[in-house]
Amino acid sequence: MRYLLRRLGTLVPVAIGVATLTFAMIHLVPGDPVVAMLGETAAPADVAGLRHQLGLDRPIGEQYVDFLAGLMRGNLGESISYHRPVAGLIAERFPATLELTIAGLVVGVLVAFPLGIVSGANPGGPADLGAMGFAILGISIPHIYLGPLLMIVFSLDLRWFPLTGRGGLAHLVLPAVTLGTALAAVIARMLRQSLVVVRESDYMRTARSKGRGAMAALLIHGLRNAMTSVVTLVGLQAGALLTGALITEMIFSWPGIGRLLIGAIGARDYPLVEGCVLTFAFTYVVVNMATDLLYGIVDPRVRLE
């Protein structure tokens, strides 16, 4: 419990850090929300007027302090391009991103376990080569390529799944596979590694010399050992998974927070960009706290100081 409180305490500096980094980056990038909004033919006086109206003509330091103060009060501000509170927009779009990310995680784990076990049980064998070949393929295909590829095969040619958009489970499959493949590959490799280490251990040598039950023993011990690594890995990969979700959303017209963010960057909608990035960061931190807690459950030897 104390640990949890401590972790929650670290959330504040991380949130401020992310907010500051985002603020600095988006303001350093050339371009202007007002020009992006009014277009190329806008009169200079109108641009200046709107800048004033939105408070963009104030000193950058003052804007930053205002932004942080708002954040402290839990106010993310109002989107410039939507004319709506940022918090509401995010609340609307976040479930779709969460759904996609969880589905990607599920695909990753479901694919990784059989692959990892198959190759770890008999390293160097043909099954190992095949599974690891698949893993390498999974890592080497970027989302922007895998997404359309899956669409061509499973939607255009086979007609199994709808192409784009969010709907039932069928809509979820292709984006989830796009997102989960790289994760599956990474976890599978980690599992294989753990199993190989256990396999070479003295304990297993003894078990093997006794002959029967070696496979079961390997799986039980190997997987138990691997669980902590897998949980840690999921935490480490959470960032990659969220970034992947962003691109996957773009490809599959998935109405999540990633598309909201890309659109907001294009429009230089500062409050919305900041809100989206903070949501991503917050999700990441929460996932990592969760994996830390899981760590304790999976491996009771780990004490949470």
């Binding site: 991380v14 992310v18 980094l21 960032g239 990659a240 970034t243 991503f280 960061a281 917050f282 990441y284």
Partner: peptide
């Protein structure tokens, strides 16, 4: 600091 960078979406 590591947490902040990790939590920041790489693509942005």
């Amino acid at each position: 600091a590591v947490d902040i960078v990790l939590a920041f979406p790489g693509i942005l």
